[in-house]
Structure formats: C-alpha cells, structure tokens
Design a protein around this nucleic acid. Structure first.
Length: 555
RNA sequence: UGGGGUGUAGCCAAGGGGUAAGGCAACGGGUUUUGAUCCCGUGAUUCGCAGGUUCGAAUCCUGCCACCCCAGCCA
C-alpha cells in the first residue's frame, strides 16, 4: 500500500499533512493521537475525532496513540477507561501497542516544569485563586502582574520541590508560566501550569499531589510521543500560541503541530459530557448506553452498525465551519448499511386478527420466503400459513382515503410470500371497535407458483396466529425536541414507546442479543443486549424504513 | 469596544483567477409480491454584503455585516 499523495478533494487537514510531507517534515512520519479524558463516555463527536485520527494514521502509514488524558484525578475514574477502550475497538480501530496515559509522563512534566523555572520562564504564585482571577484582567483590559512574579530561580525551585513533597494545602501555591500579563490572548497572561491536588489518582495513587493542567500536559505529551499532527477542536485555537510557547521554551525531542477543526453537532442531540451525565444522573435515561443517547455505547445498543457511523463521519467531512447535521444524514448511513446486510423478517407491531373463511380448518402450509430480496446468498426460510393470521392494524381501513393500497372492505391485498386475500366481513364489538376481519383467499395466487397472472396493488406483512412469538418492541425517536437544544429541558415525551405483545414470525424466537433484522415494511430492529433467551424477547427499533405513504398522508 | 475563528442551496461539502463537483433532504417520474431498495429527472445567472483589480473573481485587494470561541487552580 502506498500513500495517496493527491490533495484534490481531501479535507484541509489531510492537505496540510500532505504539504508537510512534501516539505520533508518529521522525517516523513505521521503520528496522531486520540486523547480522551476518562471522565465520561464517548459520543458521536468523539467518533468523528477517532475516525479522523485513526483514519489519517492508517492512510499515511503512521500510528495513532490512544492516550488517556488523566491529569485531573478529582474528575476521572478507571471505569471510564474500560468503556472508552471498548468503544474505540467496537468502532473498528486499534491502538495496538500505542496505549498511553498522560500520567505515564508525570515525572517528565515535573522535569519540564523545573526547566522552565531554571530558565526564568515560570514562577510559583502564592496568590489565592480569587486574586489570580481578579488580576487576570478582562477581554478589554490587561491583567496585573503577580507580586510573586519576580521570585528568584532558587526560591521558585525550592517552592516547587516543596509543592511536590506535599508541604502545602490545595490552593496555596501554583506554578505559572511567565509570559505576558497584558497579552491580548488571555491564555498567555501567565497561565497556571501546575496546581496542588491532594487527591488519589486512579493510576499513580498517592504518588503525586501536584498535577499539571491541560495546556502543559497535553503539549509535552504530544512532544514526547512524537505526535506530528495534534488535531483538536476549534475552542483550542486560542491555546495554540501557548502550545507553541511551551514548545519554544522546552528542550523536547519533537515538534508537534496543532490543527483545529470544528466539532460535529447533530440536530436534536446534545454532546456535552456534562449534560449527558446529567441525563444519566437524573434518571431521565436508562444510562450512558440508553439507545436514545448519542454515546457510542448508546448507538451500539440502539443497533447502529459501526460501519454506518464511520460512513456518516466520512460523509460529513472535516472543516472549520460550525456545523449542525440533520438526523436524516445519520439515518441515511444507517439505513444503507442495514439494507444491504440485514435479513428480512415479518413482525406485526399492532396485531389485527384475520380469519380466512375458505381455508381448511387445521391446515398448516409452509411458504418459502427470501431472507433478502436482492442477496440470494442470504438464503430462504419457511413461513407457516394457516386459517388465522395477524396483520398490522393500520393495514386495514374501513373507510380509506384514495390510493390506500392495503386491505379495505371488499378489497384485495397480497399477503407477502402468500396468497391474495379479499376482505369479506368486518366483525365489531358493541362499542363499534373492530374485533377481526373475515376474508377469503384465492388458492391460485400462491407466491411463486406461477399459476396466477393476477396482480394486486398492495402487499402486506402478516404472521400465523398460532405459530408466532410475542415480543416487546421499543420504538425510539429523538430524545430532545428542539433541533438545536441548548439544555436538556425540552425532553421529547415520545422518545420511547414500548409496545407489548407484538407478533413476530416464529423464526425469530431464537434470535440472539445484537442480531439485526429488517421487519418488512416497518423498520430495522435489533435484539436488545438485555433480552433474555427463553423469556420475553425485546427488540429495539434502530430506524424506520422510509415511508412515502406516511409522507403523503401528512400533506 | 481586545484577541482568535467562520460565512458556497434547507443541511453538509468540493472548488484556491477561466465561467459553481458530490452527498443528505425536498419534489416529479419509472421498476417493485416491502408505499422499502433500486433507477431516472428537477435545483445557485451565483458563492455574507459593498466596492476595487482583471479580458475574466466564489477564488486577489479594501471596507463592512453576521455568527461562534476565549477572562477554570476543567479538558
């Protein structure tokens, strides 16, 4: 495999990598990294970053590190680490031996900090957090220098050593870079590099009580690992000058380059770890992997194939423009994948009994059905047909509108893979509610028999009343009503509809968790991961089929 | 009113002086024993706006406008 060196049509990041390569930078290496903080679950936005970083590494024959950015022990935990690894693997990417943690470099960070101190580029500030905050200035006014800014190198060294050895309380001292309190870019106004945190770290336990902040730890980690292109989101654009400053003032083995791209926003969803965890904590969803969540684990449980998520990220592209992608875009990727690879099955969501009066009382006939209309390799299965069947309640209308191609009084319809039936009588209870439909069937119209030239406009799905299995169906729609939700306050009340006693063809009785099917004419469904075999089957609706009839009805 | 960014169709997105790719959506039509899939067709006299340079500008220059981000000892 060789590197595709044409820049045409590629996103701006790949174009600049190509240009760096053509200039002979980084000994022709391309190293990237995906650096999640283990303080929550990965979501669709992370998926884009994962696809970008691992995609680039593989296209350029480089490597991509999975680096846990674990510099804040008060917010992080090892539980998230496992979930994150699982999600990356499931998405189809592998870090191989390049699994690292910022905490692997704590000693290096400390030495780098000492180097800054020795060179007079950093100092210990003994102001309180409030004092630091109020002397930082504002967007329009410069900040004021700390009274501790000109401590001697020796004093700073001593203080920093004492910070490390645990002599101070949290907040008593911090290490600050000595840059420029009047810089227009606030990140350059003597940013804090290290703070004291008497907290147990998930990996280094009680070994440290000082922890580096993002800008310092992230930059040095990139340089240590030899990352050539450090890709992050737009909000870090302002931090790039600090990133460069750190690289400029330290002796490091490599010189990474930071490039920023816009984050992926999806309509009707929220991708903020804070808000997602709020949904979880308030019990508004089942958990991080609730099928309505935009988390990778949620989408996995919902039944979205990993390949569909990758395809979606690829179609959406990488730019610096703020984007808000329509759900239809994601659903398109999901449907495309599922249409190709899902075996078909018949399932009646809301059963309505149909009795075929002229069909022999105890006869059960086996009908052959293709598992996929185009892919013969997916084989066939057998469907039992008998006198009593269930059809979808909304496939019958007593007084239908024009162009209703389904069952109506006196009308005919084809049963998928079966016969043409005609509605002879509608049986109702005292309230006028429909109890069952009586039909006749035409024995000469059996599917595939070739004896019938007759055609009817409509074909509906069905299930044999005695030979079917009952299941619970969970029908999902967006969690939030607003297209661009700002908070989790406008929850969609109908984001989950639970349907009990749906009637499925009996072949589905032994489906296993994770198995995906297209229920013909209704949608794609997956067996929920908690669905127990032998007990009630639970299916999650992944996505509906496109429905031009429903669309017609609306207009 | 400081600094950093971004503006091409409803949503994404190519295009980087030679006369607006593609995808999603929408809308028409065809095929169909899934109103699915599939196939065909329909959109920008114009690229945030206004000037300028040029034979020629979405692309270069100037000015303006709109929107986003930044004042954590979070990442």
């Amino acid at each position: 495999m060789t590197i595709d060196a044409t820049a045409k049509g590629k996103d701006f990041i790949r174009q600049s990598i190509l240009s760096d390569l053509s200039e002979g930078k980084n000994e022709s290496r391309v190293f990237t990294r995906f650096p999640p903080e283990p303080n929550g679950y990965l979501h669709i936005g992370h998926a884009q970053s994962i696809c970008l970083n691992y995609g680039i590494a593989s296209e350029f024959q480089g490597r991509c590190y999975l680096r846990f950015d674990d510099t804040n022990p008060t917010k992080e935990s090892e539980d998230y680490v496992d979930a994150i690894k699982q999600d990356v693997l499931w998405l189809g990417f592998n870090w191989q031996e390049h699994l690292t943690h910022a905490s692997d470099y704590f000693e290096d960070f400390y030495n780098c900090a000492m180097q800054l101190i020795e060179d007079g580029n950093a100092y210990i500030d003994s102001q309180t957090a409030d004092e630091i905050k109020s002397s930082r200035g504002t967007l329009n006014a410069p900040g004021a220098e700390s009274p501790y800014r000109n401590r001697s190198v020796a004093e700073n060294q001593g203080l920093f050593e004492r910070m490390r050895s645990g002599e101070f309380e949290e907040g008593e001292n911090v290490l600050r870079a000595k840059i420029d309190m009047s810089a227009a870019n606030i990140n350059l106004r003597d940013p804090v590099l290290y703070r004291i945190l008497h907290a147990e770290h998930q990996r280094t336990a009680g070994q440290w009580c000082i922890y580096p902040l993002y800008d310092f730890a992230h930059t040095v980690s990139d340089a240590i690992e030899g990352i050539t292109h450090s890709l992050c989101t737009l909000e870090f654009e302002d931090h790039r000058p600090l990133y460069e400053w750190i690289l400029d003032h330290l002796t490091l083995p490599h010189r990474p380059r930071q490039i920023e791209f816009s984050r992926l926003n999806l309509e009707h969803t929220i991708t903020s770890k804070r808000k997602l965890s709020e949904l979880v904590e308030k019990g508004l969803v089942e958990g991080w992997n609730d099928p309505r969540m935009p988390t990778i684990s949620g989408m996995r449980r919902r039944g979205y194939p990993a390949s569909a998520i990758r395809d979606f990220c690829k179609r959406v592209g990488v730019t610096k423009k703020e984007k808000s992608i329509q759900i239809a875009q994601l659903e398109n990727s999901v449907r495309q994948e599922l249409d190709n690879n899902s075996p078909r099955a018949m399932a009646v969501i809301k059963p309505l009994k149909v009795v075929i009066d002229n069909y022999p009382e105890d006869q059960i006939e086996s009908l052959a059905a293709n598992n996929h209309p185009k892919n013969q390799a997916m084989g066939t299965r057998t469907l039992p047909f008998s006198k009593e069947i269930y059809i979808e309640e909304n496939d019958f209308m007593e007084d239908p509108p024009a162009k209703f191609f389904r069952l109506k009084p006196g009308g005919e319809v084809r049963l998928r893979f079966g016969y043409i039936i005609k509605c002879e009588e509608v049986i109702k209870d005292n309230n006028g509610d429909i109890l069952e439909i009586h039909c006749s069937y035409d024995p000469d119209t059996k599917s595939g028999s070739g004896t019938s030239k007759r055609k009817v406009k409509g074909t509906i799905h069905w299930v044999s009343a005695k030979q079917c299995v009952s299941a619970t169906l969970r029908l999902y729609s967006t969690l939030l009503s607003a297209a661009n939700p700002k908070s989790i306050s406008d929850l969609n009340e109908e984001s989950l509809t639970v349907v009990k006693n749906a009637a499925l063809e009996e072949n589905l009785a032994h489906a296993s968790p994770g198995d995906r099917f297209q229920f013909e004419r209704t949608g794609y469904f997956v067996v929920d991961e908690n669905s127990l075999q032998g007990e009630e089957l639970v299916f999650n609706r992944i996505v509906t089929l496109r429905d031009s009839w429903a669309k017609m009805q609306k207009t």
